[in-house]
Design a binder for these strands. Structure first.
Lengths: 347, 347
DNA sequence: TTGTATGCGTTATCAC
DNA sequence: GTGATAACGCATACAA
């Protein structure tokens, strides 16, 4: 714990003389009041006389006091912590949702503890167990990878849970999202409607993508289209993979009119390979993505993709948790935000 | 807190009868041992008889016991928590660093609590204050936005701190990163060496980028090149911004041979605009990025960019913290990992 | 408006 | 190898 003197000395300029551990006790002593008055000055300033409030605040500033949230949580049985589990940050698909979630929760005094599940059920399980130990007041889960035992753990914990992005059949608690079956079928109909008949799917093999793919293939069959060529790879799907997969498709001699990709980053890779091979998009090959991330609209060519109202998703999830955590009833525990096909240049 | 019975009932299948709050007390009672034996079974299994260990573990499983980390932290004065502050997740520049950091720390039993500073000094301040309340055992800070008062708070807290990605002059504690002055000058020399003379910089206006830009311009002057055209925008720099800025450059009639961008996403936007305008890259316009994110290598054209050994950065930062948190001395508290210009097609 | 007593769930410490 | 006790820092409940 030793620290080189040279590095810590500048800190002393600010006038605060915080040693390593300042508790409410020191603040109370310095302000000449009891512990409880300091406690109230922090959490219910209205119930403390103006004059003492000034003294206490001064004492807090001078000591550099920061309340120990472990003690607060333990005593009050509230952690002011919300755990958000996402499978990855590498595809950008959850950026906006997470930002909205965090902003709305922060406005109500909650911090977001982020967990990355890495598309691994085992990892997600361990993560969740570890994080439940922090006694979060709420949990959001994005991506439907969680195992039966994890679901049981969550349900039994009594912690409000929002499953995000997927209108699962048998929700743990609350849900906000869309039907990935409808997405898959909708994309297929869209492509068919624009005249593409020989369809392919490049996809991650996570549960949501698999459900989209199945619905996509089923819809193609229903429409009398040729069998869909589906390629499923371990997520997260990335740019380089898109290039590789299109290359393979071509070297295999497959004739395809349109490719639906399970992420925009994957689609960008496909478009890059098409560009290098001078394949005209969308005339000779149409490409669609999923997620409507920031670069989709400004990509060249602009990427046609499946978008959702990510701001609404994040805000809704946060609001559900906030209501539940405050003990208020949540009217709609299942919110379908739908999706939209953002028609642009690539398909 | 009420939950619809339909959703929670499936959880009962697993055989665990966890009610909302199981404490070490219930486990001890069920196993027929004292609290301390349960505590030891969790943290020092070697010091518990094999037979009792079995009984305790059985009891833990049956009750669904998860230790309350608030209580553990309070009593043991160790939170097993490391706070990582990053300015944004939208540029992908910190993905690999964060992943490495998390993996290495997780292997030693630490969780990472992520804070997003949003390139706002005020937000970063609030964030850090709030997070220090959780009494993290270590902190990493990426991006040099932190204010004097925040630096003082950190230094005074006695918590081990690693500043990541930037070889700052006056470190709070430990540092791993590179010199952004050297990056700026190095990129300028690289471009000049390849024959580009009229240089421009598209950049965020965060402190690091500003330091790169200043060094870049200074080096250009030293080399006798024309004045560098520098455009600085609020971060995070994004794809659409790259398109906009190149458009402006052209409509202003500026003649430029090469553009250095402060992020790869920004550079991708510039390349997209160049593609649309049929500007040959790099023959008529060279483009460089910063970060060497995943798509840089597979972009078409492949993006020349400034890369660093992100894995090493993340692992080194984690190891520094681990040593410090374990009370071991850290030999090198300042680690320069350098940088590399990844020469590809675009410049 | 302010203060006192008590306990949240766990572990350090010491005793057996 | 196991247990009893106290204490971590704070807020609830109640008293003054």
């Amino acid at each position: 714990m030793a620290r080189s003197p040279s590095s810590s000395s500048p800190s002393l300029r600010s006038g605060s003389v915080a040693t390593a551990k300042v508790t409410i006790r020191e603040v109370a002593a310095l302000a000449g009041v009891s512990l409880m008055t300091v406690s109230r000055a922090v959490s219910q300033p209205g119930r403390v006389a103006e004059s003492t409030l000034v003294r206490v605040r001064d004492a807090m500033a001078r000591t550099g006091y920061v309340p120990n949230m472990s003690a607060v949580s333990l005593r009050s049985a509230q952690s002011r912590l919300v755990v958000a589990i996402v499978p990855t940050l590498r595809t950008h698909m959850f950026d906006t949702i997470l930002a909205a979630l965090r902003d709305t929760l922060a406005a109500h005094g909650y911090q977001v503890l982020l967990g990355i599940g890495d598309y691994s059920t085992q990892r997600e399980d361990e993560l969740l167990r570890a994080l439940v130990g922090r006694r979060p007041d709420g949990i959001t889960v994005t991506g439907a990878m969680h195992s039966k035992s994890t679901r049981a753990l969550l349900a039994a914990s009594g912690i409000p849970v929002v499953e995000i992005g997927d209108l699962v059949k048998d929700p743990i608690d609350m849900v906000v999202g869309m039907s990935h079956e409808k997405v898959g079928a909708g994309v297929c109909r869209y492509l068919a409607g624009r005249g593409y008949r020989r369809l392919a799917v490049f996809s991650g093999n996570d549960p949501r993508a698999l459900r989209r793919n199945k619905a996509f293939a089923r819809e193609a069959a229903r429409l009398g289209l040729p069998t869909v060529h589906v390629v499923e790879s371990p997520p997260p799907t990335h740019h380089g993979l898109g290039r590789t997969l299109l290359g393979q498709l071509i070297s295999e001699g497959r004739r395809v009119d349109a490719i639906y990709c399970s992420s925009d980053m994957l689609a960008a890779g496909v478009l890059a390979e098409a560009s290098v091979r001078r394949i005209d998009v969308p005339a000779r090959l149409a490409v669609m993505g999923t997620g409507n991330v920031e670069f989709a609209a400004t990509h060249a060519p602009a990427l046609t993709t499946v978008g959702a109202d990510d701001l609404r998703i994040g805000n809704t999830a946060a609001q559900m948790l906030i209501d539940r955590m405050a003990g208020r009833p949540v009217k709609d525990t299942v919110v379908d935000v739908g999706f939209e096909i953002m028609q642009r240049e690539s398909a």
